[in-house]
């Protein structure tokens, strides 16, 4: 293998790894923009009808967001909101909320 090929391969691997690594910091920013209006950064507003997300199981959150995005779980509001999220947005948001205690 030529050295340039190796570099390209490594760079590709790195890019792949970093695109997969969920960042709770990026998630906090995204959650503030997209989720917090209803679900709060830590908890929903007093007397609001929305379920809390903070501290919930990461797999549950990820599955639910993807279902809402793909409209396999139907909710007028959530289908609209989750529809704008990329896979990495979802990973970041999940990594933020599942780590808030």
């Amino acid at each position: 293998m030529k050295i340039t090929q190796l570099i390209v391969l490594l760079a590709g691997l790195l890019a792949f790894a970093s695109s997969q690594a969920a960042s709770p910091y990026a998630g906090q920013v995204k959650a503030g923009e997209v989720c917090a209006q209803c679900h709060g950064m830590k908890q929903p507003g007093v007397g609001s009808p929305f379920p809390p997300l903070a501290g919930r199981d990461a797999n549950y959150l990820k599955t639910a967001l993807k279902q809402y995005r793909d409209k396999t779980r139907v909710s007028e509001l959530m289908n609209n909101i989750a529809g704008s999220l990329s896979d990495s947005d979802i990973n970041d948001i999940v990594s933020y909320y599942s780590n808030v205690h």
Partner: peptide, 19 residues
């Protein structure tokens, strides 16, 4: 109606869904 239901992001406008 969408704004009233979901709130307006990056403003104080809250979501009135369920309220």
């Amino acid at each position: 109606r969408t704004i009233v239901l979901a709130g307006s992001f990056d403003t104080l406008m809250p979501p009135f869904y369920g309220k």
